[in-house]
Design a protein around this nucleic acid. Sequence first.
DNA 1: GCGAGTCACTTGAAGCTTCAACTAACGGCG
DNA 2: CGCCGTTAGTTGAAGCTTCAAGTGACTCGC
Lengths: 229, 229
Amino acid sequence: MSSKPEPVTSEPEPRWLTPAERAGWLSLAGILIRLPGALDSQLQRDAGMNTFEYFVLSGLSMAPKHTLRMTELAAFVSGSPSRLSHVVKRLEQRGWVRRDLDPQDARCTNAVLTEAGWDKVVASAPGHVEAVRHLVIDALTSGQIRQLHEIGERILGRVAPDEPCTAYRPATHETTPTTHPAEASTRQTEPSTRQAKSTAHQTKPTTRQAASTHQTQPATPRSKKVPRS
Amino acid sequence: MSSKPEPVTSEPEPRWLTPAERAGWLSLAGILIRLPGALDSQLQRDAGMNTFEYFVLSGLSMAPKHTLRMTELAAFVSGSPSRLSHVVKRLEQRGWVRRDLDPQDARCTNAVLTEAGWDKVVASAPGHVEAVRHLVIDALTSGQIRQLHEIGERILGRVAPDEPCTAYRPATHETTPTTHPAEASTRQTEPSTRQAKSTAHQTKPTTRQAASTHQTQPATPRSKKVPRS
DNA sequence: GCGAGTCACTTGAAGCTTCAACTAACGGCG
DNA sequence: CGCCGTTAGTTGAAGCTTCAAGTGACTCGC
């Protein structure tokens, strides 16, 4: 980056990839091309949504009151504001998400998972996890899974250098202390298998699932939540 | 897959991901979401095309006479026939590719890289390689690059189980034995630095680049080439 | 307290991909 | 020969993403 000889011609002869580097890159490129489609097709077939929509629902299902500002949600799923807006509108039309104006700050929109949305995530999670397991996890040794994490973090550090490239970390500080009514099947943030198990279909699923399906961004819901006051 | 207890309820409690598995998957998911965009934006900015279009041009640039049937090209870049058709039409409109009817079999269309198309790949290759290097290769140790290859092949084996998931392998058996006119700057399949170096801009680029940018599928150009006769 | 600047979205258009027909050509087979 | 099934590719519509504006709402400084 700093001391390129820059010969007489205008181009400084780029550093081509070695065979080993090429092999690594080609494998990664293959994954980039085919894996999303494979995951999408499972979700599309079994749940009528794509992976990104699933991520959004899943992200909301993990959020404190099943609620997240559009911006937080966008960061969480690594989507542009525009994309989020379109997607949430679609999800709202299907009745899985509701949009409320934030009473604190009228500029902000809060996306809220509806009960139907919650049920949808809970119902879709097992199939998605199964797909992830089948296509990725079960193909690898545990050492490779560790390596995958390390490799992924390093690449993400390059792709989004400005962002805290720590992997998903569960929202430890609950904002919904009164969380598990164990009845309404709405608003739970932590699995709590015993209580919820009997409630609807799976209860553990979503929370775990959400985590497992989601993306690296921590969403940092706490950071800007109370900027004023 | 075989001996699930299957409790009394209808669903056999899926195998959730362990924390380590989740961490690995989340890192991969992050890459799936963000890396394509990062690569696209470089190519879009510097070459006015997206990664898939680049792959197509690059694939043609490596093919024996800079020519590939649509089907072969589709396999090579892992795209559907429809997608290829649309993309090649766009590339044709920009003058980078030509479509000829195959004289042997009138059903088939041969996509041919034009001279302008060749120049375009050659000019775009360095920037793309630089991006790949910056975002992926340089972020990893050589051991990790090896692991990445291994991991990628294993996952690809699951995603496309029916296909020969060997990484790109250069078309060893040349069909264009009289390949390097070293003058026309068209039709070369192997770098052959010495001869071509002076021809146009970069000559090594495309070939190497093509390889480095391309995807795992070997395209197997030989297999169906002469089905009759 | 009001005007400029920023922030948080939303919107519509354009582009790309997918999906579901649809066309044309080849290969057998009776 | 003529029909049927397969193969190769194209097409148009629908859906999703991106891009470029655009709209309110907050904030800060004077």
